[in-house]
């Protein structure tokens, strides 16, 4: 120790030698993700943000509007639930955004950043923690859906395909949410903007009723709505339903991967830039 006094709170607890940067990154990310995981059971309402809205939609469409909706060759449960699963990715943006804006405005992130911690670990953990939370939320939706009579036709291979697609989608949309959270000043603003974007896209994207039956204007929007590709992809994997219309609807899996790749390619650099820019300004 140097001649300069430091605060001692007891016998010296020597710091282990500082590992190499990649090892520190992994270690710090894990410690920070641990913080998010511990928080989840203490705020069940945050999980219900993700789950209540799909539950309400499920009940509403299954038992209220459902009787007036007839999709040829498929039970409405089997049409609706994959749709809700797909749109839940987009609703995850709102959850990730509000959590991020809270962390940034309440000073938790500043505390982490004032420690000798890899910058990338702080933001990676933010994304990973949110993804895990959303996975939990989606699992609840799946369980409720199955309870209400949804029967996905999943073999082992298509099960992995679904999991892979959903995970990629979650990561992409969570980065978008984290970016949104860093750009906005309050969780109310994130919620307002999030709902204003996600709700119409979700209705136009064929979550509840087929796009082909819509009037011209909503149909054209719906055919190129990123959510319609996602919803169609989930439906194709879980029920073998092939949708018609635009290219992205006839090739929904490729389109979904494309949309998510695009979203990631845009949001990750912007979020990292914003995170560092925050530091500079």
């Amino acid at each position: 120790m140097s001649a300069v006094a430091a605060l001692r709170i007891g016998p010296i607890e020597p710091l282990p030698p500082r590992p190499a940067r990649p090892i520190r990154f992994v270690r710090e990310t894990l410690v920070l993700v641990g913080r998010s995981l511990r928080a989840i059971p203490r705020v069940p309402e945050r999980l219900s943000d993700v789950t209540i809205q799909p539950i309400v939609f499920t009940l509403l469409f299954l038992y209220v509007f459902g009787s007036a909706i007839h999709i040829p060759g498929v039970r409405y449960q089997d049409y609706l639930l994959p749709g809700l699963l797909g749109q839940s990715l987009a609703f995850g943006v709102i959850g990730a955004g509000t959590a991020t804006v809270t962390d940034f405005t309440e000073g938790v992130i500043d505390r982490f950043r004032s420690l000798p911690v890899t910058r990338l670990a702080v933001i990676s953990a933010q994304v990973a923690g949110q993804v895990i939370e959303q996975v939990l939320g989606i699992s609840i939706i799946v369980a409720i859906g199955i309870g209400l009579g949804w029967r996905p036709h999943l073999a082992v291979a298509s099960g992995f395909e679904l999991a892979g697609l959903m995970l990629f989608g979650l990561v992409a949309f969570t980065w978008f949410g984290v970016l949104l959270g860093m750009l906005m000043r309050s969780s109310d603003a994130v919620q307002g903007l999030g709902f204003a974007i996600v709700v119409p896209l979700s209705f136009l994207g064929g979550t509840f009723v087929p796009i082909q039956g819509m009037q011209v204007v909503p149909r054209v929007i719906g055919e190129w709505d990123p959510l319609s590709a996602i919803v169609a992809a989930v439906r194709q994997v879980t029920q073998g339903i092939h949708s018609q219309g635009s290219w992205q609807l006839t090739h929904p899996i490729a389109a979904m991967v494309g949309w998510c790749a695009l979203l990631t390619a845009i949001c990750v650099p912007l979020a990292l830039h914003r995170f560092r820019a925050n530091e500079g300004g």
């Binding site: 511990r38 505390r111 004032s114």
Partner: peptide, 18 residues
């Protein structure tokens, strides 16, 4: 610098759920 200092901001920099 980060190794030598500790900062308390105007908002408590703590995770409220922990």
């Amino acid at each position: 610098v980060r190794a030598a200092i500790a900062l308390t901001g105007q908002f408590a920099g703590l995770e409220p759920n922990l």
